[in-house]
Amino acid sequence: MSENRFFQQVNSVMGDYRPEVPQGVYSGMRQKLWWSNFTRFSLTSMNIWYMLLIAGSVAAWFSFGPEASSVQQPQLPSEQVIVSSSSEIQRTEQSSAESPETPETVKPRNMDVSTQNIPDAVVQSQNVSAQVEPQAVSQNPIETKEPETIQTPITVDSPQVGDAVKKGTKKGLKVKSYEQTEKK
């Protein structure tokens, strides 16, 4: 039998072969079609991209929305360290010498706690306790912001403040605590 004849015979038998399709194929095809449409982006129909967008929006709203900011509790400072330059401290000393009874009236210019210019600065710790007079407290701009900070007793002898004073002393800086200033 020649090659062509054999191929023609196969072609004639199999070319238009139409077997019966099992029933389950249709439902499976429908599921695949639904999933295909669901995972494909379309402006007109609901799909996975819209759902991801909605989920992302909800997550962002819970993370950064107005309720999230109200839920966050204000962080109470455990201690307040005022960093000021040596020149300002000298000025403070001078003014305290002139009027020893009111040391709290001197307002340091750099009140930003985050400024940690340690070599040029003198760390001054504050004991915000009941010993501080309300008038003096009201003159301090930091303490007037959050009155709750006044209620948190912080002692000068805390190890953190002591460390800061020690570090400052080691580096040859003049360290003065708030209490010392107050005593003067």
């Binding site: 399709v21 499976g28 095809m29």
Partner: peptide
Amino acid sequence: AQDVLQEVFVKVYN
């Protein structure tokens, strides 16, 4: 063959 047929129809419709 059934799996392939399902994929064929999904492609056809899409």
